[in-house]
């Protein structure tokens, strides 16, 4: 676990969870593949997609509110990236995506190139250690407890 960051974030409900993941993911979207482990992939996928679109609209508002040409260019780039980010509830063996939302059944192996792993289910230290070893160098494991 010596090469990976671990971060603990609070868990207070499904809506708040998708909101928090969307906000955190905003800063991590450039860093390779993202995996979210949850007991309800379909539900979280729908909620996260909604929060992601909402955040996209906030970026559009920020872009419209500034006269700084460099910032406008950067926010345009960000928006394009956000709109092209793909979410999937399928196993990495079945579908290529940027963000995988999986339950324990489908998470047989952490996909290669995973830089961010969100564990929304309670995992013991041994499981977290295994995840930490599977995540790329300088990657991040976020736990919700």
């Amino acid at each position: 676990m010596g090469s990976v960051f671990f971060e603990r974030r609070p868990l207070t409900g499904r809506d708040v969870l998708s909101w928090d993941i969307a906000r955190h993911l905003y800063g991590r979207q450039l860093q390779g593949t993202v995996v979210i482990l949850t007991d309800n992939p379909t539900g979280l996928h729908a909620a996260l997609a909604k929060q992601w679109r909402r955040l996209g609209r906030a970026v559009q508002r920020e872009r419209a509110a500034t006269l700084d040409a460099v910032l406008i260019q950067e926010l345009t780039r960000t928006l394009s990236r956000m709109q092209n980010l793909t979410f999937s509830t399928q196993s990495p063996f079945d579908e290529l995506a940027d963000v995988y939302i999986l339950d324990k059944e489908h998470l047989n192996v952490v996909p290669r190139g995973t830089h961010t792993f969100y564990a929304t289910e309670v995992m013991d230290d041994e499981q977290l250690k295994d995840i930490g070893e599977a995540v790329a160098y300088n990657g991040l494991v976020v736990t919700y407890r």
Binding site: D20, R23, H24, Y26, G27, L55, A58, V59, E62, T66, V70, L71, E74, L75, T78
Partner: peptide
């Protein structure tokens, strides 16, 4: 900074620039 959309969006954008 994750709580405030303005800080989150412009903060990371300025850092990226």
């Amino acid at each position: 900074h994750t709580w405030d959309a303005h800080e989150l969006i412009t903060g990371w954008a300025k850092f990226a620039i």
